[in-house]
Write a protein that binds this DNA or RNA. Structure first.
Lengths: 344, 344
DNA sequence: AGTTAGCACTCGACTTAATCGAGTGCTAAC
DNA sequence: GTTAGCACTCGATTAAGTCGAGTGCTAACT
């Protein structure tokens, strides 16, 4: 059996309708609503074929049809339209990131939030592993005699700070010298490049007490390693409740549960480091808890380095066309902002 | 009609049972379950009195009784037992705040999260208004020629950073001098004390270009004022879904909506600056959206200064006894931690 | 006077049966 | 190959019936 043009048009009608109404679609509905020039009986025959081919499913005998994962896949790969961002969408985005235009991590969180508002789905952002971020500037700020804050400006001009606690006192001059020393010598390095053996080297070269350097580097690498690998933020989670597929509280609870499981989200966003937008439909994600959800994700990057990912998650019946358009449009815009950030 | 001891015991039984089961309680249930030594008929008479007095309500004729706001109020004020934290509870708390023991803002967020887990309700934390925080140390960290990060260590050793953008370049030496100058002269001040007129004064006193100082102070006070007044974090929001009173998705959605309205939450937590734990029952909060919720809240403070608030929010039928015990126990413990923090 | 057994009554929740209607598959005619 | 027609299916909705937890009231008991 071949998938002729008419079958495709019918499939498209079914999916579009189902995305809107969340109700199984019958042949008569299509005949009336879409002007395909054929009768409901013919559509019925075609639908029977489409079901046999696995593109649509009948939830129970004598009900309308619903798209299958395979159906959605075809739709996403071949049928759905992409569009540019509308002026309003662009405006919302700009308004939201306006306040945080200089820091990439804030930008991404605000972006996620904007996407959640526009798509009415939940969004997930992953921040880069701190180990992999390149150091642009490093400086210590005293808190009291024995503790100080390590302020870290990364390549992407994200600012991170970590409190470090020493068991020896540290006077201000030494701290300033230390800041300078490390900042100059570690610029451009990744955090995972920091090695405690550097202490010896630096001590000799700059005539500073080795035990102090050791303590600081130790504390720093300690902080890095106990720090969770990746940070994950979610946004618009409550949007989930507006979808009729989650009107059963148990299902909604499952979903919320899933969105709190960091490991799961990391796996969900992770893998693949292409620039392209990826659409993962239903069971394709191999997670039972999320088999009724689809995810649309993309990576954002600074220079050639993957910086993190952003994903839109919703029911399989989500508006793929809108979500992909919004995500790709916004990312294009954001990438320009990021480029300007890293460049200038 | 007077509220004799027997009436009180019956009321207590009703409330305890209702908190557990979420079902209206009838006279026979009480007679069987609680050994009050009187028959269901007598209890019936007493319940009729209690209803007349406004402590309990009949959702519909021929159903059991449910506590009214007034009933809960009496229970909270006079009947409910407080207890100390159990070892497990304490252990959980310690485990959760272990990683962030040096920074008060992290401590509070972790604490909120621990309370949410223990009470199975949602928690809200407000962070202090940045305007009111006292400066302990202030330092600038360069990002590029025209922008730098202002790192701010507060009295409570919270670290905040804000990116500041100048339209003039700033060399490193000047930045260091500036850091020192401001740090020394502003220590102990509140942010709202910062006044642009200081620029002139400082410029004269320390022989630095007035326009630079002006720009920096302007930028700083700008950042402070555009910054939202109070930051609010929530935790355990999904717990809400486990309460049968929110098994209707519409109600749950309302609740989620409410928990995203910052202004509402600020009002909810705000007011009152006593050290005591306050319980706000149902309509007492004067917010229609939250009239079926109760809030248990307390302030935490550094020295004599209010630092922020933390609140537990759940259905009116929440386990007040547990929530109050957990909140007060944890706060006592946390206050000790904070004291050590500010002292040492 | 307070307590209790007994009883008629109420009313929401649940069960069962009946009806409705959107949808299907199949057949026969176009 | 297309379509009108028709019998059939089956979930959803509606209506009626039953159940039971609970009440209020009365009369008898301590």
């Amino acid at each position: 059996m071949i998938l002729n043009d008419r079958k495709i048009r019918i499939l498209e009608a079914i999916i579009n309708d189902y995305i809107q109404t969340a109700e199984p679609i019958g042949s008569r509905t299509i005949a009336k609503k879409y002007d395909l020039g054929i009768s409901s009986a013919t559509i019925r025959n075609e639908m029977s074929d489409l079901e046999e081919m696995g593109f649509i499913i009948q939830p129970h005998a004598s009900s309308g049809r619903v798209p299958s994962d395979k159906g959605y896949r075809l739709y996403v790969d071949r049928l759905m339209q992409r569009r540019e961002l509308t002026d309003e969408e662009m405006l919302l985005l700009q308004k939201m990131i306006a306040g945080s235009i200089h820091q990439i991590d804030y930008i991404m969180r605000e972006t996620a939030s904007a996407i959640a508002i526009l798509t009415k789905c939940a969004t997930i952002v992953s921040e880069p592993q701190i180990k992999k971020t390149r150091i642009r500037h490093i400086q210590f700020v005293p808190v009291d005699e024995k503790s100080f804050v390590m302020v870290l400006v990364t390549d992407g001009k994200a600012v991170k700070n970590r409190l470090i606690y020493l068991n020896q006192t540290l006077d201000e001059d030494t701290m300033i010298r230390l800041s300078k020393l490390l900042s100059e010598n570690l610029r451009g390095c990744c955090f995972e490049d920091i090695d405690v053996s550097m202490a010896h080297e630096f001590a000799e070269q700059f005539r500073m007490p080795e035990d102090l350097l050791l303590a600081v580097l130790n504390a720093a690498s300690d902080v890095i390693h106990t720090e969770d690998d990746v940070q994950i933020y979610t946004s618009g989670v409550k949007n989930i409740l507006s979808f009729p597929e989650f009107s059963d509280v148990e299902k909604a609870k499952n979903m919320f549960q899933a969105l709190e499981e960091k490991d799961m989200l990391i796996t969900l966003l992770g893998s693949g480091n292409s620039e392209k937008i990826q659409v993962v439909i239903g069971a394709e994600n191999n997670m039972e808890l999320l088999e009724d959800c689809s995810v649309i994700k993309a990576n954002y990057r600074v220079g050639s380095q993957n910086f993190g990912s952003i994903g839109v998650i919703g029911p399989k019946r989500m508006d793929y066309s809108q979500a992909v358009s919004v995500l790709s449009g916004i990312l294009k815009h954001i990438n320009a902002v990021i480029k300007a950030l890293s460049g200038g």
